[in-house]
Design a binder for these strands. Structure first.
Lengths: 147, 147
DNA sequence: GACATATAGTCCTTATTAGAACTATATTGG
DNA sequence: CCAATATAGTTCTAATAAGGACTATATGTC
């Protein structure tokens, strides 16, 4: 298989993601958060809180970064940290009541913003696009495992 | 169309891109460059140089960031800046001979690394995947234009 | 030629990113 | 019970990211 024939896919993936980031990030900033902060608020919404490990897994933000982002959300009084009752090493991050209100307000707004891109997609389009992306992700992840 | 039904696509796009970044970035770092630096070297390879404006368009690195990345590549003697002969505001960034050698050495290596992910893809798979990504990118970009 | 407007790149600021080293705590095996 | 190993989160570092303000230059109009 020609090595070059996959380059258009790489190019389209990068541009697609950047277009998404631009579309999404532009709106998030008007909400007074950064994309990483929004990601954490969205992940914590409608939960009782979760450990940093779980947060890192669900958001794919590396743990070195996660500490700082949670720090800034805590400084904004949107998130609080509580020591884990069961593991002395661990802390639980949880939305404060202010954070819950923010989540309740901005999450639907952001879903609406994102949804605008999908107005022309049929149900079949959506399922097909998801399947293709999952397959592509699997291809990259399988390479990662062999390292 | 249900607002929620596109969320799996968003999730898969983000995870797919992160898997790609992890797969690609890991290799680039072993080459002694950062992903943004590699992006610029790859974009300048096999050209006579280009303006920052053109570089920004081809790499989608914002100009505030671009100055710093080119600075660091210049400090590594991989890229040089020359004043534009036709526009007093503009500068041309170009690979040095050291940069050309690096490009010649690492670009095929990186293509090989990326190509490993696509070993199971048929020609039709590749074309189909590209078409889906282009369509999805178009959806996000069309939203950007209406702002 | 003068003036208004636009543009190229730089500088600045705040936040994020990734990963290694570190400390405190947990787990496992003998 | 103790030693070895693993893990959770923090700290640190250098680089990137995004966008606005700025300076120097270009362009267009009168």
């Amino acid at each position: 298989m020609s090595r070059k024939s996959f380059l258009p896919i790489i190019r389209e993936l990068v541009r697609c993601y950047q277009a998404f980031e631009s579309h999404s990030g532009r709106h998030i900033r008007t909400l007074g958060l950064t994309p990483a902060q929004f990601d954490i608020v969205a992940t914590l919404g409608n939960t009782d809180g979760m450990s940093f490990k779980q947060l890192g897994e669900k958001t794919l933000i590396t743990k070195g970064t996660l500490t700082g982002v949670v720090d800034r959300l805590a400084a904004k009084k949107l998130v609080s940290r509580v020591a884990s009752p069961t593991d002395g090493r661990s802390q639980i991050a949880r939305l404060t009541s202010k954070g819950e209100k923010l989540f309740a307000s901005i999450f639907p707004s952001h879903l609406g913003h994102l949804g605008r891109a999908f107005g022309e997609f049929s149900g079949e389009d959506l399922q097909h696009t998801e399947a293709i992306l999952r397959n592509l992700r699997g291809a990259f992840e399988r390479c990662g495992e062999t390292t």
